[in-house]
Simulated assay, not measured.
Amino acid sequence: MAVTVEALSARLQQAFVGDKVDVTGDGYHFQVTIVSSRFTGLRAVQKQQHVYAAVQDWIASGELHALSMRTFTPEEWSTNGNNAG
């Protein structure tokens, strides 16, 4: 069973309560943008690890096939994130 945009969005919103979470995709390839203060001081790979931790079971089962992500602190988002394509 493939993951839906709605299911992925709900899962990430539970993991990142109160943060900006935006999910788009077609059921196989998903694009995620998350803006969270928990990313402050983390390198890009560490930010991605936080996101992957929330969906690891879906990745392991093969339900989630492709996930690209953009992760920002609120400061990064206000500086350049919301202007990046």
Score class of each variant (00 low, 15 high):
Met1Tyr: 01
Ala2Val: 03
Ala2Gln: 04
Val5Asp: 01
Val5Glu: 02
Glu6Tyr: 00
Ala7Ile: 09
Ser9Met: 05
Ala10Met: 05
Arg11Gln: 13
Leu12Glu: 00
Leu12Tyr: 04
Gln13Pro: 05
Gln14Leu: 10
Ala15Val: 02
Phe16Ala: 13
Lys20Asp: 03
Lys20Glu: 10
Lys20Val: 13
Lys20Leu: 14
Val21Thr: 09
Val21His: 08
Asp22Ile: 12
Asp22Phe: 06
Val23Pro: 04
Thr24Lys: 04
Asp26Trp: 00
Tyr28Ser: 11
Tyr28Cys: 02
His29Asn: 07
Gln31Pro: 00
Gln31Phe: 03
Ile34Phe: 01
Val35Met: 06
Ser36Ala: 05
Ser37Thr: 12
Arg38Asn: 04
Arg38Cys: 07
Arg38Ile: 08
Phe39Trp: 07
Thr40Asn: 10
Thr40Ala: 12
Thr40Ser: 13
Leu42Gln: 14
Leu42Asn: 13
Leu42His: 08
Arg43Thr: 08
Arg43Ser: 06
Ala44Leu: 14
Val45Arg: 12
Gln46Ala: 15
Lys47Arg: 15
Lys47Leu: 06
Lys47Pro: 08
Gln48Met: 12
Gln49Cys: 00
His50Arg: 11
His50Lys: 11
His50Val: 03
His50Ile: 06
Tyr52Gln: 09
Tyr52Lys: 09
Val55Glu: 06
Val55Ala: 09
Trp58Leu: 12
Ile59Cys: 04
Ser61Glu: 14
Gly62Ser: 09
Gly62Asn: 07
Gly62Arg: 06
Glu63Phe: 03
Glu63Asn: 13
Leu64Gly: 00
Leu64Asn: 00
Leu64Gln: 00
Leu64Ala: 00
His65Cys: 02
His65Pro: 03
Ala66Tyr: 02
Leu67Ala: 10
Met69Ala: 12
Arg70Cys: 03
Thr71Pro: 01
Phe72Arg: 11
Phe72Trp: 15
Phe72Pro: 10
Pro74Tyr: 14
Glu75Thr: 15
Glu75Lys: 13
Glu75Asn: 12
Glu76Tyr: 01
Ser78Met: 11
Thr79Trp: 07
Asn80Trp: 15
Asn80Ser: 15
Ala84Arg: 15
Gly85Ser: 14
